[in-house]
Nucleic acid binder design. Structure first.
Lengths: 182, 182
DNA sequence: GTCTATAATTGGATAGAC
DNA sequence: GTCTATCCAATTATAGAC
């Protein structure tokens, strides 16, 4: 995970403090080891997104989910994992799908469920909950996501709380109760 | 560009119909060739984003910029280029920055300029034009962007026009003239 | 089970003829 | 300038001793 997708078995054995043959006793090929490591990393890194409290204020729920999402997205381990998944997407699209489901996909589904419930209660004007959830996360994360994957510094340096607050405010203007949907 | 960042000089020479030595006569190292190819590709792929007409309706300007942005983002060549930039980000962050500036960065600056002008005219309620522009592009592209990089199929298949229309509508509710900013 | 030593292959780069 | 043939380093995987 530290050295990226093209790390050698030699380097892995060195870091593990064993010889190559010891690794080959546990994994038949480098591919097998790679898949096992990535699957494990996806489990470790995509920590379960807390289910929102159905009774809480939309602004508070959005802020909490938003901060969790941004923190996960900017986590150095998560960035490394995503780079590896992108670099090997041609050989292992299944691993990419695994990450999407467990990470951003889960966050999106959780928020969409909450938005649907709030729409029924009349506290939000959300026609398509999955689209609205994507709008929320997309507003916050899009630019920073690309930059972190490319190793490009974000100017000005990202302020998570501010980004979250701006996205929450914009989302509530777009999907608040008084809004006319079309 | 077809085979990805780890293509061999052998394969490149074969595709070019020459021998390796012929390539080495033009480029001192594989690195040099790589940088030249990527720089050229960035130029080719990030076609100049049309400057918005200052007088046009916000909804129409947003729809045009949105469609251009989505088309560029989903272009197969652009996806391949981005994968290569991500895979080599540790060795060549400069190339990633080049792409960001020329591609999404340019689109964002163009939209931000337009939004600032419209805010002065009172047709939009935009406090921070760069943030608002990022909100617009982020709403449309975020999820699809990650999926295309990872080679994961988007379910349901993406409908550019619909995504653009939904983002334009949400943006205008959030940043339309009647909106209360905070 | 683990280690050292060693295939066997690949791939970047070069030599030397034409 | 271009080609063929070759060098050399790195890397995956295995053999065989302990």
């Amino acid at each position: 995970m530290e050295q990226g997708h093209d790390v050698s078995m030699e380097a892995i054995a060195l870091a593990a403090g064993v010889s190559k043959q010891t690794i080959y006793n546990a994994f038949a090929t480098k591919e097998d080891l790679f898949v096992a490591i990535v699957e494990d990393s996806v489990d470790r890194i995509t920590k379960v997104v807390a289910e929102p409290d159905p009774g809480a204020e939309p602004a508070a729920v959005l802020a909490t989910l938003g901060r969790d999402f941004m923190t996960l997205m900017l986590d150095e381990r998560a960035i490394r994992l995503k780079r590896i998944l992108v670099a090997t997407s041609a050989q292992h699209p299944r691993l990419g799908a695994l990450f999407v489901q467990a990470g951003p996909g889960q966050a999106r589904r959780r928020l969409a469920e909450y938005l649907a419930a709030e729409a029924l209660r009349g506290r939000l004007a959300v026609a398509d909950p999955m689209v609205a959830a994507e709008h929320f996360f997309g507003m916050m994360s899009s630019h920073a996501h690309l930059c972190t994957l490319l190793g490009v510094a974000i100017e000005p340096p990202i302020d998570i709380d501010r980004r979250v607050d701006l996205a929450v405010a914009a989302f509530l203007r777009a999907y608040g109760p008084g809004t006319t949907r079309r």
